[in-house]
Amino acid sequence: MNGSGPITRRGFIGGALLAGFGGRAFAQGFAGLSESADGFAPVVPDRTFAFPGDHGPHPEFRIEWWYVTANLTDARGIAYGIQWTLFRQAIAAGGAQEGWANQQIWMGHAAVTREDTHRVSQTFARGGVGQAGVAAAPFHAWIDAWEMRALDSMNDENIAPCSLKAAGADFSYTLRLDAERPLTLQGDGGYSRKSLREQASYYYSQPHYAAAGILTIDDKPIDVTGMAWLDREWSSQPLAADQSGWDWLSLHFNSGDKLMLYRMRQNDGQHYSSGKWIAPDNTVETLGSDDIVMTPLIVTQVAGRKIPTSWRIAVAKMALAIECRPLNPRSWMGTSFPYWEGPIRFEGSHTGVGYLEMTGY
């Protein structure tokens, strides 16, 4: 204690979360995700996914997230982005303990982005006391009053329709998410490698959401519509000790195609890349490091860091050559584990919108 006053419950929870992720975060990879996973379940190939069960938590694994991003516009054509994320972190392996002894720590991030502003909120909770959690059926993910919840007619194979809401001090949003197309298993049947070694996650997405609702900034409500993307991922050790973070994109093409790709940055410069192209007829093309070329174009000074906020992306086998530019280059998530996350536009061989996330800078 530093003598500055009594610690609050939320301050205690936040401190516990920081301890759980590891104070050596950036020395050992973004948010300590390269630390040893001894005692936690391993990620292995050939897992059979089952829904709705896999929409719920997997506490035997160390880390997990439910991650929604949306590219939206209002009636005047003004562009917005929203982010809603629920993270689960196990601070110790073993069977679940009750109440405040529960090993699960929860963290929520919410953001709203416009060309001239980027608003961020963060909240923490301890598992076992009802403040946060996820139920698989009917699906409900929540932390405090933030939630992603199944509507009455939800299809477990689509995880739609759902409602989504969050609020910060100077923004809020409530959206409905609909999808007629099924989920996509990323990587090899949901087994997503993060290096040529054993680092991997279980990973699936719903890239086909149509979103509509109300976004409020500074007490001014705005009707918005657009496209949203859900990522579900869990692992026990997604980074290797020589990896510092990742650059990840989700892209909605005006043609109806979708593309997810990422680059795991390695200290020796031999970065590991992966991706999946999803055609309008739901056929997929898996992409590897030899297929993907990601070249930074513009570096922005944000929060004392140099962040590559514009990129050239090339995938020759798909005849893709695009340049991605941010809606707001200062889309910095100044949270306990800071990172850059924001909506982008792209043009070139293909056009559209999407989201860019960069960690570990």
Rank of each mutant, 00 (worst) to 15 (best):
D152V: 02
I78C: 06
D144V: 00
D178M: 11
A110P: 08
A141M: 10
K165G: 02
A111E: 05
Q83L: 13
A150V: 11
G127T: 12
A141P: 05
W100K: 05
G128V: 03
I78T: 15
T113H: 08
V129L: 14
S153C: 05
M148W: 07
A96N: 02
I78W: 04
W142M: 01
E115Y: 01
R119L: 15
P161R: 08
V120P: 04
L86W: 04
E115Q: 08
A110V: 13
E98V: 12
Q103C: 07
F171I: 07
E157W: 00
R149I: 05
D144A: 06
C162T: 11
E147R: 14
G130C: 06
A93I: 10
M107A: 10
M107P: 00
T174D: 09
R119G: 07
A79S: 14
A125C: 03
F124N: 07
T117Y: 00
L86S: 03
W142T: 06
W100Y: 02
Q104D: 15
P161D: 04
A167P: 02
S172Q: 08
G94F: 11
T123N: 09
R119H: 11
Y173V: 06
M154T: 15
Q89D: 00
E115S: 10
I78L: 12
I78N: 12
R126C: 08
A132V: 11
Q83H: 07
T85P: 00
R176E: 15
A135W: 04
H118V: 12
I82T: 12
L151W: 06
T113P: 03
G95W: 05
T113D: 09
Q97D: 04
A145G: 04
G99R: 15
A150S: 15
Q122E: 15
C162G: 01
A137C: 06
A79N: 06
S163G: 05
M148C: 13
A179D: 13
